[in-house]
Amino acid sequence: MDTPTIELMSALASMHESGKYSDLTIVTANKSYPVHRVLLASRSSFFEGACSNPFRESETGVIDLTEDDPTAVEYMVHYFYHLDYLNKPLSRRSSKRSNPSISPRMSRFPARQPSKKLNLTLVEDPLLAMLSAATPATPLTEEAEHLQPDDQDALELPAKLPDTPMQDQFMDDPFDYVFTETKADDEQSHLVTHAKVYAIAEKYGIIGLKSIARKKFAAQIEAHLDSDELPEACQEAYESTVDTDRGLRDIIIQAFRSHPNLSSRKDVELVLRETPSLAFELFRVASGLPITS
């Protein structure tokens, strides 16, 4: 990721955390979020209408989403500022609260080097790295004579920005990096959450968030085939979307096609009894008929 992109994403993250310059408030059942209407209105058809038309929301500056799932709203707001959700991007404020950490590739610097200029570049904050890269390197040149050749190469800052979580999260297409933010050993049960985020993205016309939620759902469904969360996630996906929205439904149907024994589970059977649309589609699959006419 190039330096201007790092700067932009870090600035957005800081705005999200501080709420500075916010001119709109989203209210849920248990929390409120100070947000920026220009950012939301440019990314969501719902918020664009709420902010530009003579509705109560545009006059009061308060968007009441108390009827929506609070967790889904939280992740929706997070997406507006981070292009993702369920991740932990670095920001200027969070980096100041935490202790500076050394990048693994820089760990071979001797402990006797006390230079503040050098330590500044080791802080995993993209804006601090940019500041150091733009500052004349005279102090570093004086210290470089005490370093080994490999260490001198590491001081070429403009070409070697420090490793940060953000560098692993952003690629050319903002909708294609979503599988890189979690590790297998840190994986939690979020299948139902992805279904709820998908539904709220559709409800409020947030195309990018809907795409990310679908990809996360598809990536996790195989890992949840034996979990208690699978039936609930299937029911959530079918009850929170219209019949013509095949985004999550096709993923679920494909899972049942690939694993026919799923239908024999007692918990799945109970959900099928309560979710006629899913039961009907699985019946058509079992009969060799197309899902939709």
Score class of each variant (00 low, 15 high):
residue 32 S to P: 02
residue 32 S to M: 11
residue 35 V to E: 04
residue 35 V to P: 07
residue 36 H to I: 14
residue 36 H to V: 14
residue 38 V to C: 14
residue 40 L to T: 03
residue 40 L to G: 03
residue 40 L to N: 01
residue 42 S to Q: 12
residue 43 R to F: 02
residue 44 S to L: 11
residue 45 S to T: 14
residue 46 F to C: 13
residue 48 E to V: 01
residue 48 E to K: 14
residue 49 G to P: 09
residue 51 C to L: 03
residue 52 S to H: 07
residue 52 S to I: 09
residue 53 N to C: 06
residue 53 N to P: 00
residue 54 P to S: 07
residue 56 R to E: 13
residue 56 R to F: 01
residue 58 S to H: 10
residue 59 E to P: 00
residue 60 T to I: 12
residue 63 I to L: 14
residue 67 E to C: 13
residue 67 E to N: 13
residue 67 E to W: 06
residue 71 T to R: 08
residue 73 V to A: 07
residue 74 E to K: 08
residue 74 E to G: 08
residue 75 Y to F: 14
residue 77 V to P: 00
residue 77 V to H: 02
residue 78 H to F: 15
residue 80 F to S: 08
residue 81 Y to W: 08
residue 82 H to T: 14
residue 89 P to N: 09
residue 90 L to K: 12
residue 91 S to A: 02
residue 95 S to C: 10
residue 97 R to L: 11
residue 97 R to I: 03
residue 99 N to R: 08
residue 99 N to L: 14
residue 100 P to V: 00
residue 102 I to T: 09
residue 104 P to I: 02
residue 109 F to I: 06
residue 109 F to D: 01
residue 111 A to H: 12
residue 112 R to L: 08
residue 112 R to M: 10
residue 116 K to H: 12
residue 120 L to H: 04
residue 121 T to C: 11
residue 124 E to I: 01
residue 127 L to R: 12
residue 127 L to F: 07
residue 128 L to W: 07
residue 129 A to M: 05
residue 130 M to S: 14
residue 132 S to M: 11
residue 133 A to Y: 02
residue 133 A to D: 06
residue 134 A to P: 00
residue 135 T to V: 04
residue 136 P to M: 05
residue 137 A to I: 05
residue 138 T to A: 11
residue 139 P to Y: 06
residue 142 E to L: 12
residue 144 A to E: 06
residue 144 A to M: 13
residue 145 E to D: 04
residue 145 E to W: 07
residue 146 H to G: 04
residue 148 Q to W: 04
residue 149 P to Y: 08
residue 149 P to M: 11
residue 151 D to Q: 15
residue 151 D to A: 06
residue 154 A to S: 10
